[in-house]
Every structure is written in C-alpha cells, then in structure tokens.
Design a binder for these strands. Structure first.
Lengths: 191, 191
DNA sequence: GCTATAGCGGAACCAAGTTCCGCATATGCA
DNA sequence: TGCATATGCGGAACTTGGTTCCGCTATAGC
C-alpha cells in the first residue's frame, strides 16, 4: 500500500532514486570485472549502500541484470527488422542478427549461463530476454523460411536457447563460440 | 608418506574400501535425484559417513563425478572405433557417436554445466572427460574429413565443448538439445 | 593380544544469499 | 519554518553449503 489515506501517492524519495542509479552503475562495473554473479555485498559496497537496499530496489539478481542490460537488449531487438530490410537475403539478415546477439552475450561474463539457469530467481531474466528477442528471431526465421533458404519448422525459442548455450564459456581460449554458432547457421540452410 | 619404516606399505583398510563403494553408490543415487551438485552433506548422510570421509576419498567433487561415471565414459569412448567400422560412412559414424555422447550427457542432470565450469575444482573432470573422449571424436572427424564428407579443420575439442554446451538444460520442456546438435551435425557437412 | 597408525566423524569455520527491524530522513502540510 | 509520518536505509542475524581440522576409533601387522 503506497500513499496517504487520501489516496494520492507520495512521490518516490530523492535518495531512493539516487541509490537506484548508484546501484545500476555499481552493478554494471561489478559485472564487468566479476561477471553477473558478482557478490551482492560487493555491489552494495561499490554503490555505498547496505545490502538491504539492493533487495529493495532489485528483489532478485535477475531484476538487476535486466535493468543493467535493458538498453543493449532493446538495441538488439530493434536491429532485427532493420537488418531484414537492409540485408541481401533473409538468411543473411538472420545470420547477422544472430552474430549481433552472440556479440552481446559473449562480452557479458556469465550472462549466458544465467540466461539458461532454471533457478526461479532467474525467471524474470529469462522472461525478459526471451520475450523481447524471440519474436524478433521468429520474424527473421520466418522470412528466411518463406524465402526457402532454411529448413522450415525451426522454433525461435529453441534456437535462441541453443545459441545462448553455445555462448557459455566463450572466453575460454580452447573454445570458439562463434565457430559453433556458424555451424548451426550453416545447418539451418536447405541443402 | 605411506607405510612402515621398512618401506612395505600397509594395505588399505577394509572399512576404507567399504566406505568408498558406499560413497559411490550414495553419490550415484544423489546425482540421479538432485543432479551432480547434490550437497556434500546429503551424500555423506546417504552413505552413512561423515563429510570428512568424502573429502578423504574424493578431494574434489570432480573426482567423485569421474568415479561415478567412469564406466559410462569408457563405454562411450570404446564405441567410437566400433561405430567407425560398422557404419555406412564416416559421417554416419560421427553422427551416431555424437548422439551417444548427447544421450549420456542429457540423462545426467547438471553434468553438462559442470563439464564446462572453469572452476578449478572441476579441472580433473574436464581433463578426464575430454582427454578420454576428444581423441575418439578427433578420429571420427578425421575419417569423415578424409572421406570429404565434412568441412575440414574442425577441432574436436571445440566441437565437443559446443556439443556439451548444447546439452545444458536439456530437460527443459521448451528446449531441444538433440535438435540443436542435429543442426550442428548438418552444418558440418560439405555442401 | 598389542601397538602404531590409517582412517573416521563431525564440530567449527568460511563464503554468500536473504530477511528483518530499529533508525534516519525526505516529503507534505500547516 | 517546523512537525508528523511514511518511506527508505543499514547492517546484524540467519540460512545454506563447501571445506578444514583434530581428537578418537578400529584395523593391519606382528
């Protein structure tokens, strides 16, 4: 229940907003150096707040991750339709978009792991990333499928899930996520 | 330093051996219901031993996992050459073998995740699984490559790494690891 | 049987996530 | 401007799970 008896809600306190942005900055910084599983106490200390303040603003780690990466996810989502109109073929657009998505993932240490975690706390992360990006992917798949360039019936959710998985551990020297993703893209083509 | 002054080592105590097999059975059971990250205390309780006993026999979780699954890994490794002689083509052998590997992984909740963990504790797991299976995979890849069925230059380690990744979360209802692996196998073919 | 010691159990310690509550302070109003 | 009150804060305390360590027990070898 927010607000006074009269029903008109008191506006959010200034310090609360300050803390929220401080937390976002601190989290972004912590994620860069320690990955998205950076200890809560770390982030709180960086932001100069108590741990309780993190939980008040971002009840689950997923909420914090979503908030930190929202801009980049939006950019990726918006790139889909653009690529579709600008690319030579739908398959080329699909390939470009997937590479964009992969680039996003591999530069966020631990994000790919988190994305696929079945831990309930990551439900909102899962939901946001996929709800925002799966339709875009589906549109690209559909276009390429209609053009007869790829095998039909591929589910966008499954594909993104798989692409995400392939990006796990992408910073290991004896692995090459992009190569594997490339194999998948090649495997999509009709032969 | 083990043994008496005279240099002849005292043989392993009977209770020690008993505990080791009890632990293996308990761990196998725990892995089935809770995945390979089942709490140490759980496994110890199941086996009717103290936690210290686990660490004495299996210093890291990876050691325990390796011990539990050794038979199945060996079977998979040995299947490679057999498939190569019995299959119609090297590519068919490769595909069959990969499916075998995938079947092994997807039925072990959490094993695929553990396989790719960069945590130092999982080093021996990584080492054992890959050292045992990568050469087999390399042989199959080589045969298929020589036969001109697949694109050349694919590194077995990278491929297995990727296949392992694709198997993460295979028990989720909205994912299909086998489909994704199938795409990779298709992507390997020359066109 | 006796002795030396390998091996055992589990308490204690550590790391991280999460909850909760007394306290501080910003807001809205007089 | 000063006051009342709800909002929001900090961080201690609790939980869970891994890891270490040490006094004690039971076995192997004689």
């Amino acid at each position: 229940m927010t607000g006074t008896e009269s029903g008109v809600p008191r506006k959010q306190r200034a310090d609360s907003r300050r803390n929220e942005t401080a937390l976002l900055e601190a989290a972004a910084a912590a994620f860069v150096v320690s990955g998205v599983n950076a200890p809560v106490r770390n982030i709180a200390a960086r932001a100069g707040v108590g741990v309780g303040t993190i939980y008040r603003h971002f009840p689950t780690r997923a909420d914090l991750i979503v908030a930190v990466y929202r801009h980049q996810v939006e950019a990726c989502a918006e790139a889909g339709p653009v690529l579709l109109t600008e690319s030579a073929t739908p398959h080329a657009a699909l390939a470009s978009w997937i590479h964009l998505f992969v680039d996003f993932l591999v530069t966020k240490h631990g994000l790919a792991e988190a994305m696929r975690s079945d831990d309930a706390a990551f439900q909102t992360l899962h939901a946001y990333f996929l709800d925002r990006l799966v339709p875009v992917c589906a549109e690209l798949l559909d276009a390429a499928s209609t053009a007869g360039e790829i095998i039909p019936g591929i589910d966008a959710l499954v594909l993104m899930h798989g692409i995400g998985n392939l990006c796990i551990g992408a910073d290991s020297p004896d692995y090459d996520a992009r190569l594997m993703v490339g194999l998948v893209i090649a495997g999509l083509r009709v032969r």
